[in-house]
């Protein structure tokens, strides 16, 4: 029913925009990762494998990548645990207050990411709220200094930030479970635990996968929380990229790391989508 002209008008402008501002930049990132920089700081546009060679041979890069993945994995685990149980409570046990609780989960998302990370810094610091509170009630005599500037602080803050993000898809998938399936399970004599493990959990797998991907991917690429709260032991892979694009001035090497991250992220999305399709409820 739509004419050719109409379809051209709705298709061509967004197509051009996406090509210029998304496709070309990714292609440029690819090119940069094969270029190099000389001592004078000029970027040499001849193709070389130097950057990838450096990534594979210098342990600092893959060690930091592994540490970032370990931090991201912990964030994913904790935000899924918190998010899933909360979503389960809302969807199956909250009754009439469901919508109110749902809004209460969303509202923190409206407070700036940066500001919430900063708030954790004021809580966890040596003179922070938590340490002074513990001393005030005489639980500790001296401030605990492992709270801030550690991977712990980064995991805690990122879990705080991504729990609502993982909650949302999980809640959506729980809400889509036909309630008569749950009733049928009860009627056929299953205990609540059996119903949970055999009916509810398998049907919420698509939501769990989406939430897990979100939490893992977004925390893997984070560089602000580690800068603010991580200290030297909480440095993540993106912090290396930031310094390569800044003071260290080696864009090509930075581009190579970014491209590896991009590839890793795309692979994760791909696998999570495949699994989601496999588990999705028809």
């Amino acid at each position: 029913m739509f004419s050719r002209a109409y379809r051209t008008v709705i298709t061509v402008p967004p197509l051009l925009w996406v090509a210029i501002f998304l496709l070309v930049p990714y292609a440029l990132m690819f090119c940069y990762s094969f270029w190099s920089v000389n001592d004078a700081g000029t970027i040499l546009h001849s193709w070389t494998m130097t950057n990838y060679h450096e990534l594979l041979t210098k342990p600092v890069y893959w060690q930091t990548l592994l540490r970032s993945m370990w931090i991201a994995a912990r964030v994913m685990f904790f935000s899924m645990l918190l998010g899933f149980l909360l979503a389960y409570f809302l969807s199956f046990h909250a009754g009439a207050r469901k919508d109110l609780y749902y809004q209460l989960v969303i509202i923190p998302l409206w407070v700036s990411y940066l500001v919430r990370a900063y708030a954790w810094k004021t809580i966890l610091g040596t003179d922070g709220v938590l340490n002074t509170l513990l001393q005030y009630v005489h639980v500790t005599k001296h401030p605990l200094d492992f709270l801030l500037y550690s991977p712990f602080a980064v995991v805690l803050t990122l879990t705080h930030i991504y729990t609502p993000f993982t909650f949302l898809p999980i809640y959506a998938s729980l809400e889509h479970i036909p309630r008569h399936l749950v009733e049928a399970s009860h009627d056929l004599g299953a205990t609540p635990a059996q119903t949970f493990w055999r009916v509810i959990l398998p049907l919420s797998i698509p939501g769990l996968l989406a939430g897990a991907t979100f939490a893992f991917v977004l925390s893997l690429g984070d560089f602000l929380a580690p800068l603010l709260l991580g200290g030297p032991s909480g440095i993540m892979i993106s912090n290396i990229v930031v310094s390569l694009f800044g003071a260290a001035y080696n864009w090509p090497l930075g581009a190579a790391i970014s491209l590896c991250m991009l590839a890793l992220v795309l692979a994760l999305i791909f696998f999570s989508e495949r699994l989601e399709k496999k588990w999705s409820f028809q």
Partner: peptide, 26 residues
């Protein structure tokens, strides 16, 4: 096209930011 449009939603901001930085530099 569908994938590209939706990609920045799931990608860490650093990748979107850096790739555009390279575009503007070039």
């Amino acid at each position: 096209f569908r994938r590209l449009v939706l990609l920045p939603l799931i990608l860490p901001g650093i990748i979107t930011g850096l790739s555009l930085l390279m575009l503007f530099r070039v």
